[in-house]
């Protein structure tokens, strides 16, 4: 369908380029990585050997897991909210697409009617 007005084409480009949703667990992954980064940054700044020895201790792993978990627990709560928001975004994206399709079909029908009218008038 050719766009008669540049403005109509720009609107179509805007619709085509609506934001895409990331995977539902994207935020959780980012926060977990940030927590791990934080844990790694706060590790003692001593020599390599000592750092390796420290990381071999189960207690350190437990602490690191605890920090990650502490970062993740709030995300568990926000994960539900995020999923709901993800659903809402997806629903709204589908709604807008459905309305676009409906609009296109109505416009096509009108154009067809106009064409037939012109042919009948001739």
């Amino acid at each position: 369908m050719a766009f008669e007005e540049p403005v109509e084409f720009e609107k179509a480009v805007k619709r085509a380029l609506r934001q895409e949703l990331p995977p539902p667990d994207f935020a959780a992954k980012v926060l977990a990585r940030a927590a791990a980064l934080e844990a790694a940054t706060r590790a003692p700044q001593s020599g390599k050997m000592i750092v390796l020895a420290v990381w071999r201790k189960p207690a350190v792993w437990a602490i690191a897991a605890g920090i990650t978990l502490a970062a993740l627990i709030p995300t568990g709560i926000s994960e539900y909210r995020h999923r709901r928001e993800h659903q809402a975004r997806e629903a709204s994206r589908q709604l807008l697409l459905a309305l676009d399709i409906t609009r296109l079909q109505l416009q096509k029908t009108k154009q067809r009617l106009q064409k037939v009218s012109k042919q009948n008038a001739l």
């Binding site: 895409e20 949703l21 990331p22 994207f26 935020a27 980012v30």
Partner: peptide, 19 residues
């Protein structure tokens, strides 16, 4: 708040990267 920033901007960042 980092978590809020991630929540509010993840679609924008992901979408631009994807395009």
């Amino acid at each position: 708040d980092f978590a809020s920033v991630v929540n509010d901007n993840q679609a924008m960042v992901f979408s631009l990267a994807l395009r």
